[in-house]
Design a protein around this nucleic acid. Structure first.
Lengths: 168, 168
DNA sequence: CTATAATTTCTGTAGTTACTGAAATATCGG
DNA sequence: CCGATATTTCAGTAACTACAGAAATTATAG
């Protein structure tokens, strides 16, 4: 479990979370019962105040949730336990932070370039091509995103065979 | 073009490159002809030495390539100009740096946990579930990755309709 | 082989981000 | 309303990363 938490912290940094936040999630993910902030701080050896901030961030991502226990004033935290959900949330977040602003920027660019006489045609084409591609990609993502998990799983499992069906 | 380069630099930071490296790529992406390092440094207003490092990084990603001109000792650089390729390269890189190590780590974990009597069953299940999911995801990616672009494009354009075909 | 141009490596610095510990604030039982 | 407990905010510090400019290395023409 220790190694898992450490590794997850390491991965977290590559996934856009900071180390300790990722570790908190890992710990909660493996824990059968909800933990309160002090337990998290003590287990991971980081300052209580950091745990507070970190858990807030995880809450804002919907990667953890708060629960209450009768007769205990403290907040208890549970992680999102379904790997599908975890990945969905992370991907969604990345899309929002990386893809969406890019597309809207490219649209602006394209609009502006249509009127512009100074920009070389080559640059215009490059930007237009990129926008078109991004929109295709995004459209695909949207259509995938709303599929029920069962259908998605089926599709994933089909793997290669899907190419044959499409490539008629 | 200026705004594009600046914005791309900004985006780059969110995509895991550093700002100036992303700006270099943006500049080359919009440029109709190959540029040499000095031009890049001057245009972007960053130190020549940094351009050297940045371009090397882009080379290692295969996002830019070196070309030579007869009668000129300097290296000239061209960016990968096809948005499909750019995204493919980025995705591939992320997979290598983020997904692959995670999967191999989870496999190790799973193997180790099989022998382990101390780890709570709950944690074991969580890790197993995550591994299974990751492998499904990865398998799907592999099958998508090798599709010819034409098939992929067709698939993307089908969007929703694909669900109907699968969900029989 | 030498002079010069091109590129890379290296070192110190600036800027950024993450973290701690203390102080401030909020919550709740009595 | 008071005291105790839980949580959050904040300011200073530490760690890290990106960068410039100088120095060193490599390559090329003559």
């Amino acid at each position: 479990m220790q190694r898992y938490v450490v590794h997850w912290g390491e991965m977290g940094t590559r996934w856009g979370l900071n180390r300790s936040v990722a570790q908190m999630h890992a710990l909660l993910y493996l824990s059968a019962e909800p933990l309160h902030a002090d337990e998290v701080a003590e287990t991971l050896g980081i300052a209580r105040s950091n745990v507070s901030v970190g858990l807030k961030e995880l809450l804002s991502w919907n990667l953890v949730q708060v629960t209450q226990t009768l007769g205990d004033r403290r907040d208890f935290f549970v992680a999102q336990r379904d790997p599908w959900e975890v990945v969905r949330i992370i991907v969604e977040g990345r899309k929002r932070r990386e893809l969406d602003p890019t597309i809207s920027f490219l649209k602006e660019c394209a609009a502006e370039l249509a009127l512009d006489r100074d920009t070389p045609a080559y640059a215009k084409d490059q930007i237009a091509g990129q926008l078109e591609f991004m929109e295709t990609l995004m459209g695909w993502y949207e259509s995938i995103r709303i599929l029920p998990r069962k259908t998605l799983l089926k599709m994933m499992r089909m793997g290669q065979r899907i190419a044959k069906i499409i490539g008629d």
